[in-house]
Structures are given as structure tokens and as C-alpha cells.
Write a protein that binds this DNA or RNA. Structure first.
Length: 605
DNA sequence: CGGGTTTGACCCGCGC
DNA sequence: GCGCGGGTCAAACCCG
């Protein structure tokens, strides 16, 4: 791959708030654009907020027209030099603002990449670079003294320029931080809103089901993106956007009042969190009861929790509860680093796989219902399969949020599709057909029983893994993948006619490649046998699902090219390598640093 | 001693 | 009803 990418981070991006597409409210910050190379586009998830990927143009003029660049944010982090600077970066990103040499950065073959990397490595190289552009006026005619003076002047200018750049860099960092923070808050609020929405659904169940069914039928008949978007909008009425507040606790308490089954009583009576009790023993958090359980891991207990008159509600909650995002990535490490802290609570041998499956619980916050399973693929033990379920009930660090956004986006799609219909299996397909017609490669959405699961396969570097996935689908006797022409064509920049959400999902589908299918497989033993790609030096990555994070679907709206996907896989997977160094304790800084270092050394395709 | 891991037991759903 | 398999619990253990 010798072409680079222009990645634009735009706080006003329509993809950032798919729910609010009808009345988007730009964030107060001015648009922030970030450009970096394809090799580093994998860094975008770290940002944790929406990005628009713009394919590099053939000419720099075109590129300039396609971007509003306020500065360059350098995501490169040479493993030899990144540690200190990256650590100091509030967003764990190594940034350089170099407006004067922007053009050089926006380009893109291996050679240029390397040279730019060098330019980025420090003041000396930077100044040398600038000097090479400006000092050519000295042709030897002037005297030595004048020469010196000129050089001194140049040096002073460069120093001033550097100061200015640093200042801008700082501003950019602040902006990034602010935007990221806002986005995180929005995500959390959205989750709360969607939970509340779910709670209120039973009241108008019957009529709503009819509407949903009608919508599904319409989608079948090719209504397309707009209908899909409506479906998502329905989940979050615009009128509620303003009251975005922390409804999680309310939802939980509301849910709690409905717990009436013995199972629930048992849970209610028990210790509510997986924390040390007075006896120093671990107890499982059940604070949210059915509500939060809906994000929990235990499908076994779900069906008991809902009385018959709440059948649809129970289906919805069950679906939400069961929805999972599975990430396949190559890693030698026992667990991939995803920015969250996990506590192992069990391990079991799964049938059909000689490798044990480990069970983890998120310990970043008390009562966080998110859990994950980690297991090596039976077919290829270099592949680590991490399956997430649940929604974090706490703010996520940037690194974790990035991962979570990606996976949660996929999960949200699935859930959004199934939540609005009694047929939790069919809708995701409809959704996929409608919004991800051009989706390619590495992800599989398994919407069927037992759990609707999105599988992000980061182990393939196939330029067109779709074929592979299709074959797998066939092998699994799953529904064929539908590919419909997208309004904007294959080019993600041509999404003008498409809904923002559709665009987001389309992009997302391209990110790591989302694919929709209906297999029953979860976990390694269920993961389709993907042959290792020898030309890809990568390892695993990961993420976490959050249910109502449909907004994060936009966050994941990133790439639109299989090659990008491959690189993303490679970069993310390298995080996992870093995870080992972290001793499985996800340290954000080191995580990012590792990622950055691996990125900088990524050889390319 | 606190926090995390290990591991056998247990619970539950599902298929036969 | 029974067995199987997935998921969880929790006592015991380990480690810094």
C-alpha cells in the first residue's frame, strides 16, 4: 500500500450524531481536522470520537480542497522517540503541529512516509526541513557575516515558529480533549436514554410492534437508508435529547421494581457487586437487576426475569443482554489490551476447542456489567478471540473508549435492529442489507441464536475478504450476504445522498469490515476458520460493546477500504503485543505508546 | 493484607 | 427426565 489517507476529524460531522441527524447541533469547538497516513489511521479509534475518512486524492490540490486543515496532528510515534512525548499528551497522542510542511505530510508513499517520520522526530530534523525550504535564498553572494546573521534570523524565526506550533499543538490537544470529553458524555447519555426508552416500550408494545413490523416490511422493499435511520431515531426521540442526563440510575431503579421472579429475588437479596464483601470474598454485582442485567452476560437467567405479559420486553432485553461483539485478532499475548481493567472470574474448557475460555469482568467501576470472554481459536491458535458483552456504566479512558466505540457500534447496530422487532434475528439482516450494502471483509454480524454477535475479524488482510466471508457463511449454512448499491456509490465521500447514519454505518462496515450474517458462532470454536494471512504482521485487538452506543457507530465510521482495514487490523493487533508488556493490565499510556510504536514500524502492505 | 487468579462445584437452558 | 454444555460462583490460593 503506497497511498496514504487523509483522515478528517470534524466535530460537526454528521456521522458523529446519527440520532440527531435531523437537527444536528455542531459542537462549540471549531472543526478539527487531523491528517495522518494510512499506516496510522488505525490510531483513530483512540480518539474516541467520530472521524471521516477521506481517501487520499491524487493531487495535493485536490486534497487541499477536501480538507479544512487547521494543523497537523501527528499520530506517528516512533518507538524510539515516542515514549516521553506521547506520555505527556493528554490524549496519549503524539502530536506535532506543522502547518508549514503540511503538504509533505499529506502524501504517501513509503519513502515520503519515512522521511516525514524523520521530520517528525524532533526539532533538529524539523528545523532542517524548514531550512531546506527557506534557506536556499542564500546563494553565497552575501558575506559571511550576513550569512551568519541571516542564519541567526532564520533560527530565531524557526524558534518562534516552533513556539507557535507548540502553542497550536496545545490548543489542538485541548480541543481534542474537549471534543472527546463531550463525545464521551453524549455516549453515556445516549446509553441512558436508550435504556429508558426500552423501559417505556412495553406501554405501547402492541402498536409499536405493528409499526416496527411495517418498517421492516418497508425496508425489505428497498426503502433503504432513510428508513433505517428512522428506526434508530425512534430509539432516541429527538425531544429527549435535551434532557440527556444521567438516567442510568433511574433506569436501574425502574427495572428493579419489575424484578419479581425468584431469580431476581435471589439476585436482589444477594450482594450486588462483584466486590469484596466483609468476608473478603467476591460477589457478583447485580445492582441494575434486569435493567443492567440486560447488559450483563448471563443469558441463562434472563428468561426467568420477565413475566409473560412482558414477553416482548423480555425479548428486547434478552437481545440487548445477549448481544455481543467478538473480535478476532492475532496475538501471542493471553489477552489483548483494550484500555479497560478486567478481572478474571472463571475459566472453562469449551467444547470443540482445546484452548480454555477465560471469563472476565470489567472492574473499572463498581457494578459495571461488561464482561468478556477470551479464547484462542481452535483452528489457529495465534488468533485470539475476545467477545464482549454489555455496556460500561462508567466513563472510559480514551483508549478504552476507542475500542469500545468500534465494537459497540457494531453491537448497537445489531441491537438496534433487533430491539425494535420481535424477530431479533431478522432485523439485523434487514439493517445490514439496508445500511451496509457495500460492507466488506472482516466483520460478521451473527444475529441468530443464541446470541446476536458481531464479529470483527482483524486477522485477515484479504483485499476482498468478502469472498472469504461469503464462503464461510455458506459453510455455516447462513443467510447470504446481500449487497445493494449504495446511493453514494462505493466512495464514502459520495455519501451526500445517503443519511448520515447510513454513511456512518457504511464507513463502519468498512472499518475492519463489517459483515452481516447469521451464523450461530460465538467464540473461537464458533469462529469461522479464517486462514492466517502470512503477509500481515498483526495481532489482536479488541473492543467492548456497548449497547446503546449507537452514536458510537459513527465513531467507528472510519474506513472505506480493505487495505485500510488490513492496516487497522495490523495496528490494533500490535496493541495486543503491547498488552503483554502491560502484563494484561491495560495501561492506557503504554497502550497507546505501544500502538504508536508498532504503527510507526509497520512495514506496510 | 488487599487484589487477582485458579478451579471445582453449581445453576440453568436446551436437546434428546 | 437426563445429560450436556455454557456461564457463574466462591473457596482456596497466589502475589506484591
Amino acid at each position: 500500500m503506497d497511498k496514504g489517507w487523509g483522515l478528517t476529524l470534524d466535530s460537526t460531522s454528521s456521522t458523529s450524531l446519527p440520532f440527531f441527524s435531523s437537527k444536528q447541533q455542531p459542537l462549540p469547538q471549531p472543526p478539527l481536522s487531523v491528517n495522518f497516513f494510512s499506516k496510522d489511521t488505525t490510531m483513530f479509534p483512540v480518539l474516541g470520537f467520530p472521524v471521516n475518512l477521506t481517501r487520499p486524492t491524487n493531487t495535493e490540490e485536490e486534497g487541499a480542497q477536501n480538507r479544512m486543515v487547521v494543523g497537523e496532528v501527528d499520530f506517528f510515534s516512533d518507538k524510539n522517540k515516542s515514549s516521553s512525548s506521547a506520555r505527556h499528551d493528554h490524549n496519549h497522542l503524539h502530536q506535532h503541529v506543522k502547518p508549514t510542511i503540511k503538504k509533505e505530510l499529506v502524501c504517501v508513499d513509503e519513502k515520503t512516509y519515512n522521511s516525514n517520520l524523520q521530520v517528525n522526530t524532533g526539532l533538529q530534523l524539523l528545523t532542517a526541513n524548514i531550512g531546506s525550504d527557506q534557506s536556499t535564498v542564500d546563494d553565497g553572494v552575501t558575506s559571511e557575516a550576513e550569512d551568519k546573521q541571516a542564519k541567526n534570523t532564520e533560527l530565531a524565526q524557526m524558534q518562534m515558529e516552533l513556539q507557535r506550533m507548540n502553542s497550536e499543538n496545545q490548543k489542538l490537544k485541548e480541543m481534542l480533549s474537549h471534543v472527546s470529553g463531550n463525545y464521551t458524555a453524549l455516549q453515556m447519555h445516549l446509553v441512558a436514554l436508550m435504556q429508558q426508552q426500552q423501559l417505556e416500550k412495553p406501554r405501547s408494545e402492541s402498536t409499536e410492534n405493528e409499526v416496527v413490523q411495517k418498517k421492516a416490511e418497508e425496508k425489505i422493499h428497498g426503502i433503504g437508508g432513510e428508513m433505517v435511520q428512522r428506526q434508530f431515531l425512534d430509539l432516541v426521540p429527538s425531544g429527549r435529547v435535551a434532557e440527556v442526563d444521567d438516567h442510568v440510575s433511574n433506569s436501574s431503579s425502574d427495572e428493579r421494581t419489575r424484578s419479581s421472579t425468584p431469580q431476581n429475588n435471589k439476585i436482589e437479596a444477594g450482594t450486588r457487586d462483584y466486590v469484596r464483601n466483609t468476608n473478603g470474598k467476591n460477589e457478583l454485582a447485580r445492582e441494575e437487576s434486569p435493567g443492567s442485567e440486560s447488559q450483563g452476560w448471563g443469558p441463562n437467567k434472563l428468561q426467568k426475569m420477565n413475566p409473560p405479559n412482558l414477553m416482548d420486553q423480555s425479548n428486547i432485553e434478552a437481545t440487548m443482554r445477549k448481544a455481543r461483539v467478538s473480535v478476532r485478532a492475532r496475538s501471542e499475548a493471553p489477552m489483548i489490551s483494550d484500555g479497560c481493567q478486567w478481572r478474571k472470574y472463571g475459566q472453562k474448557m469449551a467444547k470443540g476447542n482445546p484452548c480454555p475460555r477465560a471469563y472476565y469482568r470489567c472492574t473499572m467501576a463498581v457494578g459495571c456489567p461488561v464482561r468478556k470472554q477470551v479464547q484462542r481459536c481452535a483452528e489457529d491458535r495465534t488468533i485470539l478471540v475476545t467477545t464482549y458483552e454489555g455496556t460500561h456504566n462508567h466513563p472510559l479512558p480514551p483508549a478504552a473508549m476507542a475500542m469500545a466505540s468500534t465494537t459497540s457500534a457494531a453491537a448497537s447496530m445489531l441491537l438496534s435492529g433487533s430491539m425494535t422487532s420481535a424477530d431479533g434475528i431478522m432485523n439485523p439482516n434487514l439493517l445490514s442489507r439496508a445500511i451496509l450494502p457495500c460492507s466488506s471483509n472482516m466483520a460478521t454480524l451473527s444475529a441468530s441464536a443464541p446470541f446476536p454477535t458481531v464479529t470483527l475479524d482483524l486477522t485477515t488482510n484479504d483485499p476482498n475478504p468478502l469472498e472469504l466471508q461469503r464462503n464461510q457463511l455458506h459453510q455455516n449454512h447462513t443467510a447470504p450476504l446481500f449487497q445493494l448499491p449504495f446511493p453514494g456509490g462505493q466512495n464514502p465521500q459520495n455519501f451526500g445522498a445517503a443519511t448520515p447514519f447510513a454513511q456512518a454505518l457504511y464507513n463502519q462496515s468498512k472499518f475492519s469490515g463489517l459483515q452481516f450474517s447469521q451464523d450461530h458462532q460465538v467464540g473461537s470454536s464458533q469462529v469461522p476458520p479464517v486462514a492466517p494471512r502470512p503477509n500481515l504482521q498483526q495481532q489482536p485487538s479488541q473492543q467492548q460493546p456497548s449497547l446503546a452506543d449507537t452514536v458510537s457507530a459513527a465513531t467507528a465510521a472510519i474506513t472505506a477500504d480493505p487495505n485500510f482495514t488490513a492496516m487497522l487490523a495490523a495496528a490494533i493487533s500490535s496493541i495486543i503485543g503491547g498488552a503483554q508488556a502491560n502484563n494484561n493490565n491495560d495501561n492506557n499510556n503504554s497502550n497507546i505508546n505501544n500502538m504508536a510504536s508498532k504503527l510507526s514500524s509497520f512495514p506496510g502492505n
